[in-house]
Nucleic acid binder design. Structure first.
Lengths: 219, 219, 219, 219
DNA sequence: TATGAATGAGGGTTCATTCAT
DNA sequence: GATGAATGAACCCTCATTCAT
């Protein structure tokens, strides 16, 4: 971000951001058109480049806004989380899926930026990814009750396994909802119930028998 | 898909395919240039479109070749698989990672086609994805010894969980190796060892205690 | 017509002609595609150019076939024509409109060739136009009873006037029927009735009072 | 027609229009090259499409300019017209032929647009045609002295007949002058004399005997 | 601050025609 | 006779970016 886009009036800023998110989310970085963005935002071409310098910057700025929004959303909803890692992961997955349903374009922009970075932006995007990780992981792992974990397994590995599994399972659900204009929110409980079943299986592998009993799972 | 690209001389066909795979894998569908492909393949623009009609067809044809190669590779290496689901998943993951290391461009093309389909090709790509699934899943699940599974969990869910987890964990390793020209093959054993640890954890969750003992895992 | 397309088997010839007429009529010379013609005729590109040399020749050949067909049609139907010029013009107009309705593509090809010749074919087309005129005009004027004409007007001019008027009036009707697949034939009588009214008016201008009376027109 | 081509500097606008008229008139819509137009107008490819969006728009805009010019020319010269329909048609035909000789390219563009519309522009062109008709017909028919008309013929039909005949006869003269750089103007009087003879014949058919006498035509 | 005219290389695609087989 | 692979120029159009105003 060479050019700090400070003094651009908030209203216009918002219009640009909205148009940008839509354009980049719908067409991807490569095929996104700055022309359409200016038209969508109702500003002139000159102004866009005056403030953002070039397409790359604009994309990065847009991505940052989405990431910020993402982190903000998480931090707002991540209250009173369970000390049980798997329960917490369930809660977090629910939050993420909800977020995806509420702001699908933003979510999609971030997701595609990370899974398929636009090549010439790899480095910059990677930095954002690390930033998210460094902010997200502590959020997820803070005050986890590790006494529940089996002692004969690598705790770090166990956590990574859970993260990976939940991420992959969640994606399967979100993938189906693309473009289905917010109609999906009603199905959120069903999705979470589904995830819950997977979580229960994971519990067998990760928690001690004693804990499992407390959680009243069948031995 | 009007024109079956059959009779194009093998040598040229191969050149086109190679150039196509490289171009699409490196730049993505949107930014791939048919100009560069023709140049790379050493043929004229006219010929490319004479055979493939348009960019979409060319991409689909290229993708199909990669998918075919993928399935071929799997079917060749998937011999004498363990009846133990998790051991088998480990074997399969090893095969896939090896494949990725040997033909990273092809792998990448397929992967990005499925995770981030080029929008106007969604339907066609989805069909390919289903085809892979319908061929791959039976391969993975055939003759699995389900007697090892705990009876108090949903077997289908357990399998999906394992698939999802292994997929996500594998991706983390492959993501790092992009473009590191085959130098990675040496690290394959280390990677598999790493995955093995995750697999062990999953075993706790999925297999019965008796079976786990037979496998001589610590109780 | 550099290359006499003699030895091409009749069946193929017919297929080519049909495809050619359709293509040239629907797209015009400029936008017609020899590719589509070969596809439509079911022959190879090589053969088409082997026989016709180039697009120009093919067009000219196709045009000639249509012109021939036109003249043939006229000569077949132009029997027992009225000696009264205006009645005869009515009959002829009816024939032409019928021809247009029966073979709209051919008619359209010829018409557009003459009204808007493809520039680089101007000369060749002009020659065809003259050929049609030189064959058509005698047909129309043969054995006309000029005794009906007023003596105080230029007979040649009168004839030209009638020709021009009928041509323009007919065009107005055919223009409306483009692409309405043969449905128009039913309306032919109505069209002729309409033209008849114009003819009646012309009679006042051209024929002598005595003749008009004989024709039982109101004085 | 997204972009109103208003604010383009007059000089450039004029250059584009001139080049456009020439290109479209000489090659027709299908074969006209935007490349040649930009070159002829001395502007960049980008600018042409910045202003006109696409070839279709450019053509339509060019056509509109010609139509406007046509109507303008008519309205300027259509002063003090005779109340006699046929005399007036003679005057108007003279004006049109003069216009054709002075701006043959514009005239040709309009004429070919109407007689042979470029298919994908049929609707838009038809609208222009209707516009011309709705402006032109009142001009032609205003304050016509219908008392001159025979009472035993359909006045509307008579008018249409005259229009059609004059149009067809005029075309025969203009057709010959294509591309003969304005040299034709000298022959205008001869052409009008020629048309006059046809008009005289029409008078017999349309006007009453009394009126004809007043006009001192031979009975 | 804000505009939008201006660029020209490059995009995918179609074309009539040739020629070795 | 008959094929269709092969060509490369030309097609219309889009692009991110610059800059005089």
């Amino acid at each position: 971000m060479d050019r700090p886009p400070g003094p651009l009036p908030k209203e216009k800023m918002k219009a640009v951001l909205e148009a940008s998110v839509r354009e980049f989310a719908e067409h991807g970085y490569a095929k996104a058109s700055t022309n359409r963005i200016t038209k969508g935002a109702g500003i002139s071409k000159g102004l866009l480049f005056h403030y953002f310098g070039n397409k790359k910057n604009l994309y990065l700025y847009t991505l940052d806004a989405c990431v910020e929004n993402y982190l903000q959303y998480l931090s707002v909803h991540l209250k009173d989380l369970s000390p049980d890692l798997l329960e917490r992961m369930l809660e977090i997955s629910g939050i993420k899926i909800k977020m995806f349903m509420e702001t699908p374009l933003m979510y999609r922009l971030v997701a595609s930026a990370f899974t398929d970075p636009p090549w010439e932006l790899k480095e910059e995007i990677c930095a954002r990814q690390n930033r998210i990780y460094s902010k997200q992981v502590p959020l997820i792992l803070k005050d986890i009750d590790k006494s529940m974990f089996r002692e004969d397994i690598n705790h770090e590995k166990a956590i990574q396994l859970v993260l990976a599994a939940m991420e992959a399972l969640s994606r399967r659900h979100t993938a189906a909802f693309r473009e289905r204009a917010d109609g999906g929110l009603a199905e959120l409980p069903k999705i979470i119930d589904d995830l819950k079943e997977y979580v229960d299986i994971l519990k067998y592998g990760i928690y001690t028998g004693r804990k499992r009993k407390e959680l009243s799972l069948p031995e």
